[in-house]
Amino acid sequence: MENADLNLLVALDALLAEGSVTGAARRLGLSTSAMSRTLTRLRSATGDPLLVRAGRGLVPTPHAVALRGRVRELARDAQAVLRPPADPLDIASLERTFTLRANEAFVELFAVTLFKTITRSAPRVRLRFAPKPNKDAEPLREGLIDLEIGVVEAAAPEMRAQALFRDRLVGVVRTGHPLLSGRGVTPKRLVAYGHVAASPQAMFRGPVDDALDALGLGRDVHVVVPGFMDAMRMARHSELVALAPRSCLGHASSDAGTVDSGLQCFDLPLATPDFTVSAIWHPRMDADPGHRWLRDVMATLCRTIEPAHRAG
């Protein structure tokens, strides 16, 4: 790499962020003329004008816009690699707020135990649970969310993930529901009763409907609610059938499927795959000591509680 100059990478990051030679020079503590010469070198190295005149200002070329996100990450990574190691993390004195995005069921199952676990060793750490209306990865990319709990999405391949536990869908009905009579639950009996569906996007269909389609069957969904806990509350006070991850039932269910909340769960008579619930974060947080500590605490906690199957 005898022709590579990492200073150019940092300068390009500043230029694309500021959209101005003067602003970039101010950010890096250089003179405007020095930054102008650096821009000339960058244009020569990339074969692109990068910033072009528009009225009294500068605007990025399409190539510069395409490079912006990559350059920002590369510049940060290069600076982190070349920076002296930080002092060892002192958990007891760590003052930090971590923002986690998780669905209502995870918060209900884990939040209290997570808070107590963290408070014992890091009393100055605060937790903020953010709502999860969708699976958009932008809040992770922009640093608005530190850690997301959920299923890894193919749409965000750059994200890092650590498996926490395996989960699966089960059926949930009120205690004493006629579906759970001695005849057993079959696909036809499952769809003979009305259903309540859980969907943040207000969708009537879910993963189980594809399996039912293959059998020529379909659910009669009477109600759609935002979350699984809402669906289980509806099932508790009606004849509706809810489908929810096994973890939503917490620790209360017995081998017989009875839940202390007036609900009973049952295995679905359909081939629905298990899924892995993971902790998901942006690569920029990989080496951050505080973030790494939080991930370790989360993984240990999930192994201890183990709501369904331990992650492989």
Rank of each mutant, 00 (worst) to 15 (best):
R41P: 05
D213G: 05
A231I: 03
G250I: 04
A279I: 08
L294A: 11
A197K: 08
T304C: 06
V191G: 07
S31Q: 15
E73Q: 09
L42G: 11
K188L: 15
D5Q: 12
D210G: 11
V241F: 09
A111Y: 03
A25H: 09
R189S: 15
G57V: 06
R128L: 13
M203D: 15
L100M: 12
E18V: 09
A308E: 05
A24R: 11
P139H: 06
Q162A: 15
R183F: 14
P49H: 07
L94W: 01
L58K: 02
N7A: 13
D90G: 00
A242M: 05
L179Y: 08
T38D: 12
G184R: 08
T113Q: 10
L212Y: 13
F110S: 02
R43M: 07
P60D: 03
A252K: 09
R174I: 01
L190Y: 12
G182N: 14
R168H: 10
A122G: 04
A78R: 03
L39V: 12
T258K: 14
L39K: 10
L16K: 05
L240M: 10
I118S: 01
T119E: 06
N7P: 01
R120P: 00
G290T: 04
T61R: 02
L212M: 11
E95L: 03
D77V: 09
M35D: 12
R53D: 03
G257T: 08
P62D: 02
P289H: 07
M203A: 15
V125S: 04
